[in-house]
Simulated scan of single mutants.
Amino acid sequence: MTTLRKPLRNGAPALLIIATLLTACSGDEYNYTAPNEICGTSVDPQALQAVLPPGDEVEATSLPLSITVACEIKVDSRLQIDIRGLALSGARDPSERAATFRMENSVEENWGPDFPAVLADDGAVVSLPCGTGGRTDTLLTEIHLYSDHMSEDERRDQATDFTRSYVTGLAEQLNCDARPAAPAPQ
């Protein structure tokens, strides 16, 4: 007895493999344009895109919380960046706050007079010497990066570039005199 086989049946595993590869490859492309503003704060779109993974859609959402700044940035509905800002009276040491988050490979920097920052591979905590009105004179800003699409060698620089861009935009938005100092030439 002769058995007839459908030609597609034998090729089904190959088609499944090709479809899987095509699906996997499409996730490696940036099918969105990074915005130049997130949650009302101007940012460098290149610095933002560098810390975001490839995907189809990026969205930034201001959160209705009782703190001064609250913003989440998602790519394809997955949280990639979480930003919190606390308006305070009296300067705060960002290293104390950063210690509670166990940030990866953190280092302390000084971005200007009374402008300390803790920078890490997965985010930053910056004490912006500027109030938001009333009795506040400092905005303690926490940035948490959850994406690990970038190489370890690039993560710190890209996280720092994004943080510097965001904090500069935040200072402009709040009409602060302080701005992060330009990075030291290497």
Rank of each mutant, 00 (worst) to 15 (best):
59 E>G: 02
93 D>F: 06
38 I>G: 05
73 I>P: 00
65 L>P: 00
123 G>S: 02
152 E>G: 02
66 S>P: 01
131 G>C: 11
105 N>A: 13
69 V>F: 13
55 G>D: 06
12 A>D: 01
143 I>R: 03
180 P>I: 08
98 A>E: 05
85 G>K: 14
39 C>K: 06
140 L>S: 09
54 P>D: 05
50 A>S: 15
60 A>N: 11
147 S>F: 00
55 G>V: 04
34 A>I: 13
179 R>D: 06
115 F>R: 09
186 Q>L: 08
25 C>A: 15
175 N>M: 06
169 G>L: 01
125 V>R: 02
153 D>E: 15
19 A>K: 04
21 L>S: 09
40 G>T: 03
65 L>Y: 04
186 Q>H: 06
149 H>K: 05
50 A>H: 07
85 G>H: 10
155 R>L: 03
103 M>Q: 09
139 L>G: 01
85 G>S: 10
172 E>L: 05
181 A>G: 09
119 L>G: 00
182 A>R: 14
163 T>A: 07
38 I>A: 09
94 P>W: 02
77 S>V: 05
85 G>D: 02
43 V>N: 06
89 S>Y: 14
65 L>S: 11
164 R>Q: 14
126 V>C: 03
47 A>T: 10
118 V>E: 08
32 Y>R: 04
6 K>T: 03
124 A>P: 00
158 Q>Y: 12
142 E>P: 00
86 L>H: 13
51 V>M: 12
55 G>L: 02
90 G>R: 01
75 V>C: 04
48 L>W: 09
20 T>S: 14
181 A>N: 12
43 V>F: 03
122 D>L: 00
163 T>W: 14
173 Q>A: 15
19 A>S: 10
71 C>L: 11
10 N>L: 14
76 D>H: 07
14 A>E: 06
129 P>D: 00
127 S>V: 02
35 P>N: 02
146 Y>A: 10
157 D>P: 03
177 D>N: 10
104 E>H: 12
75 V>I: 14
149 H>L: 04
39 C>T: 03
32 Y>W: 07
66 S>D: 08
94 P>T: 05
